[in-house]
Every structure is written in C-alpha cells, then in structure tokens.
C-alpha cells in the first residue's frame, strides 16, 4: 500500500522544489543559446535569495522582494556580460569568479538576516481553503492545488522562452549568435548586444529562482542557502538539450530526486549525507551520459558555446 500522506507530501515538495530549478535552468538556456556559458548561476541565485528576503522584510510584500531578487541576479550577470561578452574574457573563469563573489558577498551581508522570520510575509496558497475530496486522494489533490502563484507562473516561463527563441526574430538572432557569431555579425546582427541581453535576461531568472528558494521554500535566509542548486541548473541545461520546453520535465525529475532525499531521511537507515548526495550524483551521471560523443552530436549544443566573440579587423 502506498502511504497517501507520504505521497502527497512528496508531490507537494517536488512541485515547490522544481521552481528555482525551472527558473534558473531556463535562464541558462537563454544565455547558452546566445553562445555564452554562465557559471555564475549559483552566485546570482544566492544573491537573489538574500536580496529577496531583505526587500520582502523592508517592503512587506513578497512580490516586490521576489522581483528585487531577480534584479540582484541580473546585477551579477551584468558583470559576467561585461567581462565575458564585451571584453571577451574566458567565460568559464568569469562565471566561477561571479559565483565565488556571490557566495562571499551574501555570507558577509547576510549575517543580520540569518534565521529572521518572514512570518505573514511568505507567499500564500492561491486557494487557501479545505478541499472537499475523499480521504484517499485528498492529500494528492491538496499537494497539487495548494501552491502559491509563483509555482504556477514558473511553468509558463519556459513556454514563453520557447516562443521567444523559436517564434521571434529576436530569438533567431539569439540562436544565430550561439551557432555562428561571425555569420550573425555579417548579417547585421549586433552580436555583443544580443549576447549581453541574453546573459542579462538569464541573470534575472537566476535571481528569481534564488529568491523563491528563500521566500517560498526555506522561509528564511541561511548562509549557503542554494547549496549547489545553481550548479544543478547548469547540468540540467544539457539534460534539457538546450530546449526550454524540456526544462520542465528535467527540472521536475531533479526536484523529485531532491524531495525524495528529504522524505527518506529518518524513514530508512541511510545516512542523510548520502541522501543529499543524490542530486549531485545524478548530475554527474547525466553529464557523463550526455558527453558521450554519440549523444552529443544529436542533442545539439550551440556550436559557438563558450567561445568569446570579438569583432576582428582581419577575419582570416
């Protein structure tokens, strides 16, 4: 027999835990589609997380805090855009530096916020009432219905990004920059601008994801709150084959793994450390599989991914 309460709990957690992953992964898809790999996801997320808590406390409105978190993520991504896109520095180095900066900065600035209560300020379920349903299915239905607005909006984001990338001229320009900046430039596309824009948009989404983590999931600020979620998002981009729509199933799968590790803690005689390794181990497995040559040809990574583009006088 399946324990319906446990199952309901699991589904509820999975839907919630998927939100930061969906937002951050979708953001990274945009950046990588334009040819820029941004390893600053973790840094942008954690800054968004802290700023989200701080602004919510000041303004008294979680929506304002959530959006502010997005802008905090965007701020760090702008640095990446400046260094890696405009100045053409190594994208990997710049991204890691930004993650380090985000982690350090939040440790320092977040001291006063650790454990501060957001009582009455956290996102509340859209439908706060009792759900009339038979006892067998009630926990499951509750788990799906009783979420705040952001959980449902986050499902729309990848769909909107898919439309942007595949159904608009701006999206085609973004993809052209990711496939061949030389061709894009010769056709009159401002590669630097488009890449900068994509990185910024990505950063905004990382920040939103981070803000939801503190506001919606944890409910307060703690040091190192992201604990690797940003890195998982980077891995999920490849797992989603750079397709925004596929970000949804892959994020839910990963969120399910994470939620399972919470739920199984204390239920079975396995160390909690081992369980919290699940997401990272699965990221490694996914990345290994995906980097097997035969798969890689088929999954379609952007050709110019990670290659800086600086307009040259002599093109060779």
């Amino acid at each position: 027999m399946i324990d319906t309460l446990l199952l309901g709990n699991f589904v509820f957690l999975t839907l919630k835990n998927a939100v930061p992953l969906i937002l951050a992964t979708t953001g990274e898809v945009i950046a990588e589609r334009s040819g820029v790999i941004n390893l600053g996801v973790e840094g942008s997320m954690i800054l968004g997380s802290l700023v989200g808590v701080a602004v919510t406390l000041i303004s008294g409105n979680f929506i304002i805090g959530f959006i502010a978190g997005g802008f905090a993520g965007l701020f760090l991504a702008l640095l990446h855009g400046l260094v890696a896109v405009v100045l053409g520095a190594n994208q990997i180095v710049s991204g890691i530096a930004i993650t380090m900066a985000g982690l350090g900065l939040t440790s320092l600035l977040g001291r006063g916020y650790v454990g501060k209560s957001l009582y009455g300020l956290r996102p509340t379920p859209l439908y706060p009432y009792e759900i009339p349903a038979p006892d067998e299915v009630k926990p499951l239905i509750t788990a799906i219905i009783k979420h705040d607005v952001i959980v449902y909006v986050s499902i729309l984001i990848p769909i909107m990004v898919a439309l942007l990338l595949f159904r608009t001229k701006l999206g085609i320009s973004i993809r052209a920059c990711g496939e061949s900046p030389v061709i894009a430039e010769s056709l009159g596309v401002n590669v630097t601008l488009i890449r900068f824009l994509s990185v910024s948009l990505g950063g905004f989404l990382y920040g939103l994801g981070g803000a939801y983590l503190s506001l919606g999931i944890v409910g307060t600020w703690v040091d190192n709150i992201t604990a690797g979620i940003g890195w998982i998002a980077v891995g999920l981009v490849a797992f989603s084959m750079w397709m925004p729509i596929r970000v949804l199933p892959s994020s839910y799968l990963m969120a399910a793994l994470i939620s399972m590790s919470y739920i199984l803690q204390g239920k079975i005689g396995v160390s909690s450390y081992f369980l919290s390794m699940i997401p990272y181990i699965s990221t490694v497995v996914i990345l290994t599989l995906i980097n097997v040559e035969r798969f890689r040809v088929k999954i379609g990574a952007p050709n110019a991914l990670g290659k800086p583009y600086v307009r040259e006088e002599r093109l060779g």
């Binding site: 608009t168 001229k169 701006l170 085609i172 320009s173 052209a176 061709i183 894009a184 056709l187 009159g188 596309v189």
Partner: peptide, 10 residues
Amino acid sequence: SIGLRSLGYL
C-alpha cells in the same frame, strides 16, 4: 530572418 530589418523584432 536573421538581420532582416523589415521584420519586427517580435
């Protein structure tokens, strides 16, 4: 469509 001015951005 890349770089085609007559086509609006969106």
